[in-house]
Design a protein around this nucleic acid. Sequence first.
DNA 1: CAGAATCCGACCTGATACTG
DNA 2: CAGTATCAGGTCGGATTCTG
Lengths: 135, 135
Amino acid sequence: MQEGTGKWYGYCMVTNKKIILQTDPFDNNCPSRRALDLISDKWTSLIIYLLSDGPQRYTQLKRQIGGISQKMLTQTLRKLEEEGLVTRTVYPTAPPSVEYALTPLGETLLEPLVRLLEWAQTFGLQMRSPASEAV
Amino acid sequence: MQEGTGKWYGYCMVTNKKIILQTDPFDNNCPSRRALDLISDKWTSLIIYLLSDGPQRYTQLKRQIGGISQKMLTQTLRKLEEEGLVTRTVYPTAPPSVEYALTPLGETLLEPLVRLLEWAQTFGLQMRSPASEAV
DNA sequence: CAGAATCCGACCTGATACTG
DNA sequence: CAGTATCAGGTCGGATTCTG
């Protein structure tokens, strides 16, 4: 039943490559949905990857990503921290120093994410080949 | 040095879990980026999964997903078709019938996507859900 | 250094109406 | 059935300015 204003997401579960869709408009806590939302973020995956090399400081991350605005970097890091994928450690030195690192949970995300990027590298180049399609 | 108007994405490549970031503001064709953009879509992964059970018709998909608008369903399917992940077959019957199916390329995407959702199911629950959800 | 707060345009999205 | 076209609201993201 559509609640008019309230928008909701498909509730997806994977069981042996089978999908069960639930349609509870009030259940927004679907882990699958949350995970997808997470990596759907434009910068999340990049940050996760950068942190896979070890803890990094704020400016370090910013410099490496380059195109990210400080707002987005902070926002993304905060979200990752909130979700428990990244830790934020503040060293109260004279110039403030903040270090971000992956949590064990965050490191588990690394693996499926790598698979996805590997897919992208292997097959991504085949995308957008309109001539190779015979409908 | 920011190039002013042109916004750009991090160009990421994975090599043995190592990341190489390139910062060419004009190269928007990064396969990794494209792949992430693809699954970052709210509905893409759901559709891919539904199609993993075999070809489905437009209304069939719509009914199963439920909360999706026609616009979004069509838009997403078009994008997937354009990227070569989905085929669109029109049967010129009396009531028009259109069938969507995964291409071989689309099926290859299924695997990493499954890994991601499996991760979500296994570890997603460990993520801290923001208690400020009332939707 | 590491942000917070603000403004503002671009884009995404859903609702609605119409079509072969 | 399977769309297309259009419009309005909301969100996202970047640039800028200010702070401890």
